[in-house]
Design a protein around this nucleic acid. Structure first.
Length: 422
RNA sequence: GCGGUUGUGGUGAAGAUGGUUAACACUCUGGAUUGUGGCUCCAGCAUUCGCGAGUUCGAGUCUCGUCAAUCGCCCCA
């Protein structure tokens, strides 16, 4: 009987029923907070030219092995967006938003991202992200603001035990010095490290540090620390970010090893994780500053900062903590019909709906009992009963479900009577 | 991409050592009550155990493959 001919592709999911209410609630909270912080919505395409996502010499797994890339009918090389920032930067430059008088341009977006990865709880091939980006100004205060916004959203979702893991990669000069130091340090140990680390050594030595395979290797303990290679400006910048977090009472923890998966970050990088850090897919939002991205897309040399927030993860956490509640669905009126009343029941239903009254009716000629049960399930405030007699006389029976009184009402007075009850 | 666990109706699930009507509960549908519900009682609802193949006289139970979920690794949101 019920044989499933198809199922949703691996790592994708259908959102329906009660979940829609949860998603709407979450989106409402996000929109409210973004508005409070001055971020405006932007909607960009779900796919872009593949080159948009390919940085020069990108070392991230996301870009190298997780992208859904395809050719369209015109032989264009396109990719389903694996993250939001690159598309936003493309739009920023394309529409010359750098010409706007008030900098930075503050944007947010919500929508699906696609990554070909092995699905797990909190990890999907199609998942939804909230992204925020502040482009066109470089300030530790702005870095702090983005964290504060993420934290405010999470908090309003009823999650109070997040901690911000934070680190700095320094500016270009600092980072170049550090990179050299790391290469020097790991050079003699290269043979002991995993294949990925060997690749990272060439492409992005910083990423060796958050390798989970080799983290036990003794060379990691002695590895030079980024903070020792910061120049004065970078150090001051980071100190201000930390001071900012303290002033705002946002719990943080400095993580020397945190470098993050995308290659474009500079200076501040951060990740928000639950304190009791249970699962592996626990990062709720993560981001950082990107100094060179706008320029690499052909725009001016402008800095930006932003984060991506996993909406499925946020909602999972909120449900777990019972942080948000949804209102139960209720209707105003349920129309019960008995016997042959032709289209009389749908005529009444339409009349009520046209008067702004949320109305349901029976479509299957079920038993009276079944129809009453439906009315209960819908939590109808009033029930209208029409049978052959009422149909003949152009009246209806109206029953108030709270005090269970019932009366005979003429067609013309139905709306008025119902409005009194609900 | 690698390893572990799991997969029975609309739902939750029972189903030692393979044995032939797939338990029980909830929901739902019909009836008791030919036009008044939420209680009660009765009846019905899986030709079939994710899908496919194999072993066997016989498989939901064993084997293999496959798909999916989940957990760990990896990676990240």
């Amino acid at each position: 009987m019920a044989e499933n001919k198809f199922q949703a592709p691996r790592g994708t999911q259908d959102i329906y029923g009660e979940d829609i209410s949860y998603w709407k609630k979450m989106e409402e909270i996000i929109r409210k907070q973004c508005n409070l912080y001055g971020y405006k919505e932007i909607r960009t395409p779900i796919f872009e030219h593949t080159e948009v996502f390919l940085g020069e010499n990108d070392s991230s797994d996301m870009v190298n092995k997780e992208m859904y890339t395809f050719k369209d009918g015109g032989n264009r090389d396109l990719t389903l967006r694996p993250e939001g920032t690159k598309g936003i930067i493309r739009a920023f430059v394309e529409h010359k938003m750098y010409g706007q008088p008030d900098m930075p341009v503050k944007l947010f977006y919500m929508g699906p991202m696609f990554r070909y990865d092995r699905p797990q709880k909190g990890r999907y091939r199609q998942f939804n992200q909230l992204g925020i980006e502040a482009i066109g100004a470089k300030s530790p205060l702005l870095d702090v603001e983005t964290i504060a916004l993420g934290y405010a959203i999470v908090k309003e979702m009823g999650i109070n035990d997040l901690v911000i893991l934070i680190n700095t990669l320094g500016d270009n000069e600092s980072r170049n010095n550090y990179r050299e130091a790391l290469k020097q340090h790991f050079k003699p140990h290269l043979n002991d490290l995993c294949a990925d680390c060997k690749r990272r050594y060439q492409q992005n030595p910083l990423r060796i540090l958050d390798c989970k395979v080799d983290k036990g290797h003794f060379s990691f303990e002695q590895a030079p620390k980024c903070r020792d290679y910061l120049n004065k400006e970078s150090k001051q910048y980071f100190d201000t970010v930390i001071k900012g977090l303290e002033d705002l009472n946002i719990p943080y923890q400095i993580e020397d090893r945190l470098v993050r998966g995308l290659d474009y970050y500079t200076n501040t990088v951060y990740e928000a994780v639950p304190k009791d850090d249970s699962g592996q897919q626990s990062t709720v939002f993560g981001g950082g500053q990107y100094d060179g991205l706008v320029e690499s897309f052909g725009g001016e040399s402008l800095a930006g900062v932003g984060f991506g927030l996993g909406m499925e993860r946020l909602l999972d956490l909120a449900k777990e903590k019972k942080g948000i509640t949804i209102e139960e669905e209720k209707i105003d009126v349920y129309v019960i019909s008995l016997g042959d009343v032709n289209t009389y029941s749908s005529k009444i239903t339409e009349l009520l709906r046209n008067n702004g009254i949320k109305t349901e009716m029976d479509y299957q000629k079920r038993s009276l009992k079944a129809q009453f049960k439906s009315a209960d399930r819908y939590k109808a405030k009033a029930i209208i009963i029409v049978g052959e007699n009422e149909y003949q006389d152009n009246v209806v029976q109206i029953k108030d479900t709270t005090n269970k009184t019932q009366e005979n009402v003429e067609y013309e007075k139905i709306v008025e009577k119902i409005k009194n009850i609900i």
